[in-house]
């Protein structure tokens, strides 16, 4: 492989979106911001998928991140967008660290279903907690940037800019991490764990680390989603939410750290288009497009760009 072009591409996209964002209609800003939030979660899933692990319960951390951010605002009146995101990330990372001791022992379908079980327990608890609005959830206060609240017309753009910046940093760090020896262990673990152990590396340790990273990213995404959407509810922890994240992961492919964000954006567009043109059969459109991607682009949307680069 020639020079690593990913950081440059990332910076280019960041710049392009920061500039064009000022001229885009408001609704696209929101669409892109939500896609970035989901992209962060998917970025974490991608790390796990690289070593062959699929978490059917990533919504757990997405929800923890969102509720951490929401409760910080509700209980302490914190509204700084970076504080909220850090809180979401820290809360999810911490839970991920603790649960990781258990989950890092599991593989294949058992890993997936155990993580699903944990997220459903959180869902059950939240539904029962009337102080947090039960299934209706609660409203998240509008966030501020360094104590300032941007003018109405610029709120969406500011949130988008913050999201872009955060996603950029996260993608860059993950890209770096995937290049380290620990990061490169992923595909080895996927292929044959016993050989990894014979080489003297600890697969369980490596998976634990990846699990915590994925949890923290999901928490970050959840907090971002909470501040963007302005409302959180227990459905964020429900298994259908996890399913959506896996959907995007497969749609995107695991080729590059840009893929998750691209996948999330494409998913958002497909969904909203399907909602618009066929409100009665959008599930069919969604399922159909997933099938098409799996059949014709087995490595996800990302293979489109890789293929072109090689040509």
């Amino acid at each position: 492989m020639s020079r690593d072009r990913t950081p440059r591409t990332l910076a280019l996209i960041l710049l392009a979106l920061l500039v064009s964002g000022q001229f885009l209609p408001q609704w696209t800003l929101f669409l892109v911001t939500v896609a970035l939030a989901k992209g962060l979660v998917v970025l974490g899933l991608m790390i796990l998928l690289r070593c062959g692990l699929v978490s059917f319960g990533q919504a757990l951390y997405y929800c923890i991140g969102a509720y951490a951010a929401g409760m910080l605002g509700r209980l302490f009146g914190a509204s700084d967008v970076f504080t909220l995101m850090l809180a979401g990330m820290a809360a999810a990372g911490l839970v991920g660290f603790v649960l990781g001791f258990l989950l890092a022992r599991y593989r294949s379908i058992f890993f997936g279903l155990l993580s699903l079980a944990v997220s459903m327990i959180l869902y059950g608890l939240l539904v029962k907690t009337e102080a947090l609005g039960s299934t209706d959830g609660f409203h998240v206060l509008p966030s501020t940037l360094f104590g300032l609240r941007p003018a109405d017309a610029w709120v969406r753009y500011t949130v988008l800019a913050v999201a872009l910046l955060v996603a950029f940093i996260a993608a860059l760090l993950v890209h770096r991490y995937l290049g380290t020896p620990l990061g490169r262990l992923a595909s080895a673990i996927k292929d044959n764990e016993i050989r990894v152990e014979y080489m003297g590396a600890s697969a369980r340790h490596a998976i634990h680390v990846k699990y915590v990273i994925a949890a923290a990213l999901a928490g970050l995404g959840g907090a971002l989603a909470a501040t963007t959407v302005g409302h959180i509810d227990p459905e964020m922890a429900y298994w259908t939410t996890s399913g959506e994240f896996i959907f995007i992961t497969i749609l995107a492919g695991t080729g590059n750290v840009i893929a998750p964000f691209l996948g999330a954006l494409v998913f958002g567009v497909i969904q909203t288009v399907a909602f618009g043109i066929s409100p009665n059969t959008w599930q069919m459109v969604l399922g159909g497009s997933l099938l098409v991607v799996i059949v014709f682009l087995p490595n996800g949307l990302w293979s489109l760009f890789r293929g072109r680069k090689a040509a």
Binding site: P25, W27, H231, T241, F275, W282
Partner: peptide, 22 residues
Amino acid sequence: QLVDESGPATTQVTEFRNLAQR
């Protein structure tokens, strides 16, 4: 203009914005 109400609150907020602004 008809929109399906299914899906999580995030989806509904997105669709509301689409209705209002797009």
